[in-house]
Amino acid sequence: MPELLAPLGVAGMVLTLDALHTTKKTARLITETLNAHYLLLLKGNQLLARAAARLLLKGPDSEFTQTTALEDDRGHARIERRTIRA
């Protein structure tokens, strides 16, 4: 990842990466080394990361009404639900 992102000059940008790259190492690279921001995805099989995110984002929905997006989608023979809460 460092070899791919470093030459791009991404300082100040928001990077979106798939769940494969949702790691502390990648988050630190983006924020500390590249001076950028990130949106990293969590999937159901990332149990520890999901538990940590739930703790940070727990609370009644009313606290997040302005910063929550929900989307249902069909694809790949399954129904997917995506929720973004900030």
Rank of each mutant, 00 (worst) to 15 (best):
P2G: 12
P2K: 13
E3R: 11
E3S: 11
L4N: 04
L4G: 05
L5E: 11
L5K: 04
A6M: 13
A6I: 06
P7C: 08
P7A: 10
P7Q: 11
L8H: 04
G9F: 11
V10K: 01
A11N: 06
G12W: 07
G12M: 07
G12P: 11
M13L: 14
V14H: 07
V14L: 14
L15I: 13
T16I: 09
L17T: 05
D18L: 02
A19C: 08
A19Q: 06
L20S: 08
H21R: 01
T22L: 01
T22P: 03
T23N: 02
T23G: 03
K24G: 09
K25S: 13
A27Q: 06
A27L: 06
R28W: 02
L29M: 12
I30D: 05
T31A: 08
T31G: 04
E32V: 05
E32G: 03
T33P: 00
L34F: 04
N35E: 15
N35Q: 15
N35A: 14
N35P: 00
H37F: 09
H37I: 01
H37V: 02
Y38D: 12
L39S: 07
L40H: 05
L40N: 05
L42P: 02
L42I: 08
K43H: 04
K43T: 09
G44W: 03
G44E: 12
G44Y: 04
N45A: 05
N45L: 03
Q46T: 03
Q46N: 07
L47C: 01
L47A: 14
L47R: 12
A49N: 06
R50N: 14
A51P: 00
A52C: 01
A52R: 07
A53P: 00
A53D: 07
R54E: 15
L57Y: 11
K58P: 00
K58M: 09
G59N: 05
S62N: 09
S62I: 06
E63M: 09
Q66F: 00
Q66L: 07
T67F: 06
T68R: 11
A69M: 12
L70A: 11
L70M: 10
E71S: 13
D72N: 08
D72G: 08
D72M: 05
D73L: 08
G75V: 04
A77V: 00
A77P: 00
R78E: 15
I79N: 14
I79L: 14
E80A: 08
E80L: 08
E80S: 10
E80Q: 10
E80I: 04
R81E: 12
R81W: 09
R82K: 11
T83F: 01
T83V: 15
T83S: 13
I84F: 14
R85N: 04
R85S: 07
R85H: 04
